[in-house]
Design a protein around this nucleic acid. Structure first.
Lengths: 344, 344
DNA sequence: CAAGAAATTGCAAACGTATTCAAGTCGTCC
DNA sequence: GGACGACTTGAATACGTTTGCAATTTCTTG
């Protein structure tokens, strides 16, 4: 065809209107007459015209793009991405697309200066942060981001300073539910694997829910039945190692995540323990592997569709100038083989 | 701070040079003196300045962004994304980042007009297409994309018309390897689950490799031991259903993908068959679930790191004006429990 | 029928950068 | 000492859109 790409001027010429009218018509502006609007659109379609996003972005100072930043633990083998985040990624992308937003994906280290990398560079209108806990280390960055008028939401526990920016699950509540489920099966010596420190607020909240359930059932919380672990399979394996070495008897395990649970189960299998007969096990997240593992893992599912929708909606309304609103989503108990129970 | 965002003019004023020099300095142009270059960079850092991507993109007509389009089978439950693609996604993102490119992710239906949506709109400099086979349906679009000078690479089998644009695995070769592995264990009545039609070139090639291995071992290829299936767990389940109903005896199964293999194994477990004692099973892809399933699945691994690197490199060199070069990557046999064998 | 409101259009000015072209400085070589 | 080349810089322009403002037409209403 001719020289150069088709621009809105070409459409304007073909339609016999001004370029300004073309721009307005394509954006469905009520300022332009319905008939001209349709005519312009038809011609644009015939000429296979697309609005140049760079030009539009430059003029309007918005990119119609969201940045999805996934924080990886640098210690993790980088070929393994947290499957829960991947599920979230898929749904975020879908919901954003439905709102006419593109999604830019990037894996980050906590140390990088993603703030300016993205929003200041006009690469994205807002940022979604995915990471397991530990926002403490970057809270100063987040505060700066907030003060600079940056738009962002995080997946995780709501802390006072993140009010309006956080979307998460009722971790405490979910942990209570699943622990009570174990108690209902008659288990009494229930161990907890996962950090109770501030490092990971989710894990801490889950531990609190676990404690609450035990206490309200009149069962002692024993420190000897608590082992720390990070959100990795190997970490769960090692944690179970230490738990077994401790010598304290237990008949159930609440793992702070499915990955940890799977690691712990592998260690128990090695020790000749039968699941769920000797020990019942439950986890959190309902990652795909949980249903494939044998025995299949009972877990508290986080609804990644609802989560993604809440993240995107909240971010877009902040971009739109409104105040953000933190949200806590319910968790759902998924009963499978590892707890030896039936749907309550 | 002051009014408006910092631009290259602000840096220029602070550094006592012209805006043009700032632009050049930040891009490491050899045209500008080393000292001025460093001075400009220092000041830019101090002022937290970032190049506006929209403006840069508009002027240079390149977005420094790659679009990663994942084609989903619309019939699939949309919460389940092919885990193999997700693994590819992670690695593509990493390699692109290393080359200073952003990655835009989008899930697409084959029907959409992603061609102009992305490259003509200057949203991306090139497109990576991820889909299991069946590029036949969109080959006309791809041809148009090619003729228009569009830059794209696809993951999948190389066909003559896609020469230079396709990156894939030696499927035929891999299938031969894994089938020979089963033969070496003494299995003789080996079934194949997966389409042999043109719909999915990968599956077809795997079937051909399977046949080749059988023939060179002097074993008959029986049509009664071949069942079609799509790349989903449920489809594998149903396929095994039909295979069992067929009544033809078999002592091993080559599944065209891990998802299919898992579905088939579930069906066999339901039928009381023992794996690998009664039937040995192998798959393709090495998705995460394969190592968690019991028995763990023997599979031909596709190296997603190498694949991602090849995709990105090839695409970038095409964007750079060079001709694309198709590439076939080797597959790796991962021996686990489901085949009853040991590492050869 | 006049006058003001409403609807529709066009003009022209940004948006912030990359890059062409010309110009300036300085050193070198015949 | 003049000319030529290498090296650095700056002025000016174009990239393709969105949008404030003014201009024009059409409609409404007293």
């Amino acid at each position: 065809m001719g020289s150069g790409k088709t621009t809105s001027f070409d459409i304007a010429r073909a339609a016999g209107v001004s370029q300004a009218t073309v721009s307005r018509a394509l954006r469905n502006s009520p300022l332009v007459n319905v008939e001209t609007r349709q005519k312009v659109k038809r011609i644009a379609r015939e000429l296979n015209y697309r609005v140049d996003r760079s030009a539009a972005g430059l003029r309007s100072q918005r990119s119609n793009t969201l940045a999805l930043l996934i924080f990886e633990d640098p210690t993790t083998d980088d070929s393994q991405i947290n499957p829960f985040f991947l599920s979230l990624l898929g749904n975020v992308t879908r919901f954003a697309a439905r709102r006419q937003y593109d999604v830019l994906v990037s894996f980050q280290q906590l140390s990088n200066d993603w703030l300016h990398e993205y929003e200041a560079a006009n690469r994205a209108d807002g940022i979604i942060l995915l990471g397991y806990g530990d926002y403490g280390k970057i809270s100063d960055k987040l505060r700066r981001l907030h003060d600079d008028g940056g738009h962002f939401v995080i997946w995780g526990a709501t802390t006072p300073e993140l009010e309006g920016h956080a979307i998460g699950c009722r971790n405490r509540n979910g942990a209570e539910t699943v622990t009570r489920h174990l108690l209902d099966q008659g288990r009494r010596r229930i161990a907890f694997i996962g950090g109770a420190s501030d490092d990971c607020p989710e894990f801490k909240q889950r531990y609190e829910g676990y404690c609450a359930a035990l206490e309200s059932a009149g069962v002692w919380v024993r420190d000897t039945l608590r082992v720390d672990a990070e959100n990795q399979e190997t970490s769960g394996f090692q944690a179970m190692d230490r738990l077994l070495a401790g010598g304290e008897a237990f008949d159930a395990v609440v793992a702070a995540s499915d990955l940890i649970a799977i690691g712990a189960m592998k260690r128990m299998r090695k020790a000749g323990l039968s699941i769920p007969d000797d020990v019942a096990v439950v986890g959190f997240d309902d990652i795909p592997a949980s249903s494939y593992f044998t025995p299949s893992l009972t877990t508290m599912r986080q609804d990644t569709r609802a989560a993604a929708e809440a993240l995107v909606d909240n971010l877009l309304s902040m971009i739109g100038g409104q105040a953000g609103q933190s949200q806590l989503l319910p968790m759902e108990l998924v009963v499978r083989g590892s707890c030896g129970g039936r749907e309550p």
